[in-house]
Nucleic acid binder design. Structure first.
Lengths: 336, 336
DNA sequence: TTGAAAGCGCTAACAA
DNA sequence: TTGTTAGCGCTTTCAA
């Protein structure tokens, strides 16, 4: 492999000059810079990130920790993060916990702490006490995207307000018999989000003097499949069913929509359904929802970290990212 | 930061011994190894990947190049790759082209070639001539997952056979009026897959003496939204519509299903729909499809690369990964 | 079984 | 504007 020395020798200049020229540092004659650039290209020179990392202390890589990759929210955030990093010349090192917690120890001890990255972005997940301490003690900038983690900076929407807006949309339509399709369960271990949305639901209902029925709190696990099965039970009895369902995520709303279709329940005539997310499928499904933009959240968080790396001073605590009610065809006025 | 020297000094041994002990190399007294391990932990020692990379020439990281992250197939493959790498103590460096081609140059020149990785996994995408050469000339092991790229090793299902199986399922049910919801278009630039599936469709139809109607070749762009709109047009005229639609992907099949529901067309009574993928939503949607397992494909490819890295000799050319017809409720016998 | 020592390929003072 | 030089923190011979 051609090294910086080869380039220097080839031109009869010092390695320092080559290094400066290639990195665009000032104090290099334009003519020299041009010659260095063309020679480097000609020789097929590629700098070694190990060597420059070792010498400079900067790895030019950011770590991103996710609970799983192949879920709508996480992969969209990743997309936004990647975009920013790429533009800044940073590499993205992905650490997935892959659903189960088996990898956790390895991830935290082997890799993340392996001095391979300049900053860490953690995607909404529950961390153990030990892990949280590990993150807080990191000597490099870090931030959480999605659900908040105590004691760590955080980028995301105002989850309580988003849930509130969704439920109040339903109430504004005249609904009083409102069910909740909630996440949680196994995922409760990993996220704050389901809890926050559920509490917000109960609070709004209470604020409006509406009953929160135990048997109308259905468990959807944030998934289409689970939600559909739960909704099939929830909506089975025509005499005793809600007229609206607030879903903590769009994927769960799809499950409710599917169940309604199977049961021959007209949406929005007999049943209103609202979600949170604005998933890629929500528009063609005609789902009314609270839109959030995960890609924007990822980009914003990455940008913030990058800024800190550049200026070497902590950035302001970021305000919540915006959310927006998008009315489509799955919600309508309550009957009667 | 504590370095290997700190650990060595603390114990009164040499850095070489610490290095050997920590990496589990032979030739270290068990008692010494134990002392090194506990001291390292006690001091919170974490090896620098830059330093070890520079000294050993191995980065312990694998690059994964994807056209976009937030699509079902790609994120699932990523999940599988990550699982293998994590288990082997390797890090995963993600390079996304983010849909557009703006990043391409940066990715190929700055990062991938930046001597940061020991191997490269390319996810199905079209490479320019120059890019393909760059990949082929890489001095490290590489492989493509998904659509084949000429001259590069490849892991994936037999796409032609998968498409054929889907169409023959329809034909076996007595259908003769079969439409095709195809990908391609803007994506044609990036994938071989849509083309292969389309050619297979035409070939099977021909083999069975069935007509391929130009106006029944609908463009779905591999997406729910686009497919739904196309299907609305395709199915509009009751007197002149297909009795079955072969969709090159499940997401497009969802679009057809949605269009059928909007038009009041009974599935599978009046219309059979089959896809390829077995997307997470296909089971709850009752979609008949050809299952492939992208996570398995990713894991398999990563495993193969890891094996080469370990044994330092090229592995065999991998056979196609399996696919499977999964019959659910969206296909049925042709009427009459 | 252990240690000494020479790099790996860069960056960043400091000098010129 | 350019060069000299001393590391960065490991791994890996070679010797003991």
């Amino acid at each position: 492999m051609t090294s910086i020395d080869d380039v220097a020798a080839h031109l009869g200049v010092s390695t320092a000059t080559v290094s400066r020229a290639l990195r665009g540092l000032p104090g290099v004659a334009e003519e020299t810079r041009a010659r260095v650039n063309s020679t480097a290209k000609e020789l097929g020179y590629v700098p070694s990130s190990s060597a420059s990392g070792l010498a400079s202390g900067r790895t030019m890589a950011m770590g991103v920790l996710v609970p799983v990759i192949d879920r709508w929210y996480f992969s969209a955030v990743l997309e936004g993060v990647d975009r920013q990093l790429r533009a800044a010349g940073y590499d993205l090192i992905l650490f997935s916990l892959g659903g189960d917690g088996v990898n956790r120890d390895r991830v935290f001890h082997r890799s993340i702490l392996r001095k391979r990255i300049d900053a860490l972005l953690v995607m909404s997940m529950h961390l153990t006490e030990e892990e949280r301490k590990a993150v807080q003690q990191l000597e490099y900038p870090n931030i959480v995207v999605g659900g908040a983690v105590e004691g760590v900076r955080h980028v995301g929407i105002d989850d309580a307000k988003a849930a509130r807006d969704a439920v109040e949309h339903l109430i504004g339509l005249g609904h009083t018999r409102i069910a909740h399709m909630r996440g949680g369960g196994s995922f409760d271990i990993d996220f704050q989000v389901p809890r926050i949305r559920q509490q917000a639901f109960q609070q709004v209902m209470e604020d409006h003097g509406l009953p929160v029925r135990e048997d109308w709190s259905a468990f959807g696990d944030f998934r289409f499949t689970t939600s559909r099965v739960s909704a099939l039970a929830l909506l089975a009895d025509p005499a005793n069913r809600p007229t609206a369902v607030f879903c903590s995520s769009d994927e769960m709303a799809f499950g409710v929509l599917k169940a309604a279709a199977e049961l021959g329940i007209d949406v929005p005539g007999e049943l209103s359904v609202i979600g949170i997310d604005d998933h890629e499928f929500s528009e063609p499904m005609g789902l009314t929802t609270i839109r959030q933009d995960p890609e924007d959240q990822g980009a914003y968080a990455a940008e913030l970290l990058l800024g800190e790396l550049l200026r070497n001073e902590p950035a302001d605590y970021p305000p919540p990212r915006p959310h927006l009610l998008v009315e489509r065809h799955s919600t309508g006025p309550a009957r009667g």
